[in-house]
Amino acid sequence: MSQSSQQQQKTVVTVLKCLKCSYTVERPFKEGDFIPKIDGTCPNDGSPLYIWGIYAKSLVEKK
């Protein structure tokens, strides 16, 4: 596999975090997501879940 095709194999994920209990969950990025938008509630304590991060995750492991 060429280097460029390896680089293209990445997915963008959105990290959601509860600021009260530090519960964190990841899901695929959706258009309209931004940091620190409130998106749902924490399953542990019902506090708001904030979009804490959005980043590209490589699907190819680095050797």
């Binding site: 963008v12 990025f29 258009e31 309209g32 997501d33 931004f34 940091i35 904030y50 959005i54």
Partner: peptide, 20 residues
């Protein structure tokens, strides 16, 4: 166009942690 943060958004991301 999709509104995804870029590498250059690092500075604003750090500032947003204090501003939020």
């Amino acid at each position: 166009i999709k509104g995804i943060p870029v590498g250059d958004s690092l500075g604003p991301l750090v500032a947003s942690r204090f501003l939020m």
